[in-house]
């Protein structure tokens, strides 16, 4: 999976040639989603000793057009878990409504139990795998952040193919290339999660959001960040990158054909 959601779930161009837009014609056989339309870019998350930090910027792109600039891609579930969405925004909205109905139905039981992050991840993984098996995928990669049944930090991913994996740090889309290596510098091992503080984790994520803004052309300087601990979810949806400036750019000479 790379930084182009359009390429997710598709063989490389080297195998079948470039994307053929003829499939976008309304005639012909019924087709399910074969490409995402409005997309969100990276989601980043890091575990620390008491919980998880997760962030995603507030941009939804239409191809290379920065179409919507206040899209909140971190969704809370149950007041104790956060799901971060990369990829198609309409599929994200569908999943958001699905989780809402799940939450409502779960509260009908009087057991007093509610779903933790691990339970939610299992559920979402089954939804995503079912949809890919129907060849009708939900074009997203999700990060599920929260606590598991033993109140330990939980962070796991699931994508449009139903592939799941878990790690002390996770990043989707462009972040998988740019942010993941930086985040692994903070925690490279599950055993070390216990020695990472909330500040360390938050700072690392904020720094990575900045790096991504500088280098990912489909990113934005406004983002959402959430910290999930035993005390619940602290979600901030209108953060702005700090100490960010393009002022250095005018000093740069010599890129491409520029000679002066």
């Amino acid at each position: 999976m790379n930084h182009l959601p359009q390429a997710w779930g598709r063989p490389r161009n080297a195998i079948l040639g470039a994307y053929n837009p003829s499939i976008l014609q309304p005639s012909g056989p019924k087709a399910h989603t074969t490409s995402p339309i409005v997309t969100g870019t990276s989601v980043l998350a890091v575990k620390f000793k008491d919980g998880v930090v997760i962030a995603a910027d507030n941009l939804a792109s239409y191809g290379s057009l920065a179409r919507f600039t206040d899209v909140k891609r971190l969704r809370t579930f149950n007041r104790r878990t956060v799901v971060g969405f990369g990829g198609d925004v309409s599929d994200m909205q569908y999943l958001d409504r699905l989780l809402l109905s799940l939450d409502i139905e779960e509260n009908y039981g009087s057991s007093g139990h509610d779903l933790n992050a691990l339970n939610l991840h299992t559920y979402l993984a089954k939804v995503m795998y079912k949809r890919r098996s129907d060849i009708n995928p939900l074009w997203n990669q999700l990060l599920v952040a929260g606590l598991d049944g033993l109140d330990q930090p939980f962070l796991s991913s699931v994508d449009l193919l139903g592939t799941t994996f878990s790690s002390p740090t996770l990043a989707t889309g462009f972040g998988a290339h740019l942010a993941q290596p930086l985040l692994r510098k903070v925690v490279d091992d599950e055993a070390k999660v216990g020695s990472v503080t909330r500040e360390q984790a938050t700072n690392a994520v904020r720094e990575c959001m900045k790096v991504l803004f500088y280098r990912d052309a489909r990113s934005l300087d406004k983002y959402s960040i959430a910290v999930i601990t035993k005390d619940g979810v602290e979600l901030k949806e209108d953060e702005e990158l700090e100490n960010q400036s393009w002022a250095f750019a005018e000093m740069i000479k010599g890129y491409g054909t520029q000679t002066v």
């Binding site: 779930g9 994307y19 003829s22 193919l161």
Partner: peptide
């Protein structure tokens, strides 16, 4: 000659 791209339900991990 028509090549149709579509969703590829597989990947190699």
């Amino acid at each position: 000659n028509i090549k149709q791209h579509s969703f590829n339900p597989y990947t190699d991990n």
